[in-house]
Computed example of a mutant assay.
Amino acid sequence: MYASRMDSLPPYLFARIDEMKAEQQKKGVDIIDLGVGDPDLPTPPHIVAALCKAAQDPENHHYPSYAGMPAYKSAVAGWYKKRFGVTLDAGKEVLALMGSKDGIAHIAEAFVNPGDYVLAPSPGYPVYRTGTLFAEGRVHEMPLLRENNFVPMLADIPKKVAKEAKILYINYPNNPTAAVAPPGFYKEVVDFANEHDIVVVSDNAYSEIAYDGYRAPSFLETKGAMEVGIEMHSLSKTYNMTGWRIGMAVGNAEILAGLGRVKTNVDSGVFNAVQHAAITALSGPQDCVAEACKIYQERRDVLVKGLRSLGFDLPTPKATFYVWLPVKDCMAFSAQLLNDAGIVATPGVGFGASGEGYVRFAITRPVARIQEAIGRMRRMKL
C-alpha cells in the first residue's frame, strides 16, 4: 500500500514519545514532561497584539507571497545586521519559512540526487535524515563525541563520501548536546565546503537561548560562508512562537533560489498576519528574550545541580534549553524514568546512533516541576 520510501522512515521520535506519555496519563500518572523542546513560556504580549491587529485586516487574508512579504524579509535582514553584523540583500538573500523545520525538510530535494550523500551530525535533529531520505539520498552520520566537544571531525569523513556529498548540516548551539561551536570551526567548514563543492546548511535556531554572557555567532559571519552556504533560523525558540510556524533561510542567493523553487511547488507561504507579528518581534524591544533566558538559566542551574547531586557527571550548558545527560543505556533509562517516576526524557539514540549512552532533558517546565523530577529520581535511587 505505501511507497517503498516509507520503509526507510523511522517513526518520528517525538510522536512516539507523545504516545508513550498518553499511555501513562491514561493510568492517572502525573507526568513531568522534560522531553520535547517546546517552550512553556507564552509568546510576548506585544507580538500577540500585532497578530490580532493584522488578522483583522482583510488584505492579509489572501494568499501570501511565496518568498515572504518584502517588509518581513527586510526585518530579517535588519535583525541579522544588528545581531550578527551580517549584511543581507533582503530581496535575494532572505526566504520566509514556516519554521526552520520547513527549510531543513525541503532543502535536500533541491540539491540531492538519488544516491548522493548528505553529511549529518549524529546525534542530530532527526529531520536532517528524513529530509535526505525523501530526496532518496544517503546519510553519512558524523559522530558528535564528548571527547571532541561534540564537534564533527571533518577530516575523518571518507574521501569517497566527501566527493559524493551534496549537503553538510551543522547545528550550533547544538540540539541535542547543547554544545557550542568552538573558535575556528566555521572556518574549517568553509574550507571543507570549498574543497568538496558542498552546500553548507547551518541550523542556528538556538542562537538566542544562551547563558552566562555567551553570545552565539552566525555561520555567515565567517569569511567565505556566504559563498558556500545558508543559515536556517526561527522565531520559535527565541520568542516562544513554536506553534506560529515562522522562520527564515538566509545566505547564498543561488542556494536559496533552489530551496524557494521547491517550496513554491509544495506550499503557499506564511500567513501574512503571522509575518506582521514576526516583524514586530524582530524589530521591537528584545527584553523579552533576555527575560526568557534568565528563566531558563535558573531552571538549568536547578536541573544540573540536582543531577550532579544524584551522582551524574555532566557539563553546564552555555546555550539551548537542553541538558545532555550521560547514562549507561538510554532506552532503558528513559523507560525507567517514565514507568517508575512519570518523567519524560528523550533517549539519545533517537537522534542517531552516536546518541546512545545519553538522554536529553528539556528545561521547558517551571523550577518547581524540575525540583519534583529530581525528587522522584532520588526516590528511585538511580
Results as ranks from 00 to 15, higher is better:
residue 342 G to S: 02
residue 253 A to S: 12
residue 345 A to D: 05
residue 143 P to N: 01
residue 336 Q to P: 01
residue 61 H to Q: 13
residue 345 A to Q: 01
residue 259 L to E: 07
residue 314 L to V: 04
residue 234 S to N: 15
residue 160 K to P: 10
residue 374 I to G: 00
residue 225 A to S: 09
residue 205 A to Y: 13
residue 169 Y to S: 01
residue 334 S to V: 01
residue 85 G to C: 00
residue 260 G to D: 04
residue 175 N to D: 14
residue 280 T to L: 00
residue 211 Y to R: 06
residue 16 R to K: 15
residue 90 A to I: 00
residue 207 S to R: 12
residue 308 R to E: 14
residue 373 A to Y: 02
residue 137 G to C: 09
residue 306 G to D: 10
residue 116 D to R: 04
residue 15 A to P: 05
residue 78 G to H: 09
residue 368 A to L: 12
residue 209 I to A: 12
residue 172 Y to M: 15
residue 359 V to C: 02
residue 261 R to Y: 11
residue 110 A to V: 06
residue 185 F to T: 01
residue 72 Y to S: 12
residue 193 A to D: 10
residue 367 V to G: 05
residue 266 V to A: 01
residue 58 P to E: 12
residue 227 E to K: 14
residue 41 L to A: 09
residue 344 V to M: 00
residue 90 A to T: 07
residue 76 V to A: 03
residue 374 I to H: 03
residue 163 K to C: 06
residue 28 G to T: 04
residue 6 M to F: 15
residue 147 E to V: 01
residue 297 Q to M: 03
residue 147 E to D: 11
residue 192 F to H: 05
residue 298 E to I: 06
residue 202 S to A: 13
residue 101 K to A: 13
residue 379 R to F: 01
residue 108 A to N: 13
residue 292 A to Q: 15
residue 20 M to F: 06
residue 113 N to P: 00
residue 239 Y to L: 11
residue 219 F to T: 09
residue 191 D to N: 10
residue 189 V to E: 13
residue 1 M to R: 12
residue 44 P to D: 06
residue 155 A to F: 00
residue 167 I to A: 12
residue 112 V to H: 04
residue 36 V to F: 09
residue 197 D to Q: 04
residue 57 D to A: 10
residue 140 H to A: 02
residue 132 T to Y: 10
residue 33 D to C: 06
residue 119 L to M: 10
residue 180 V to N: 01
residue 210 A to W: 10
residue 373 A to D: 08
residue 27 K to A: 15
residue 337 L to N: 05
residue 53 K to M: 10
residue 48 V to D: 07
residue 218 S to I: 05
residue 1 M to F: 12
residue 359 V to T: 11
residue 156 D to A: 02
residue 248 M to Q: 13
residue 39 P to T: 00
residue 14 F to M: 13
residue 375 G to K: 05
residue 210 A to I: 13
residue 233 H to Y: 08
residue 345 A to C: 11
residue 19 E to L: 07
residue 219 F to P: 00
residue 73 K to H: 02
residue 151 V to I: 06
residue 228 V to S: 04
residue 219 F to G: 05
residue 20 M to T: 04
residue 60 N to L: 11
residue 173 P to L: 12
residue 143 P to H: 01
residue 168 L to D: 07
residue 337 L to T: 00
residue 352 G to Y: 07
residue 135 A to S: 13
residue 42 P to S: 11
residue 188 E to N: 12
residue 129 R to N: 04
residue 204 N to C: 12
residue 267 D to A: 02
residue 76 V to D: 00
residue 298 E to H: 03
residue 295 I to T: 15
residue 12 Y to H: 15
residue 100 S to T: 09
residue 169 Y to P: 01
residue 262 V to T: 00
residue 299 R to Q: 08
residue 255 I to C: 04
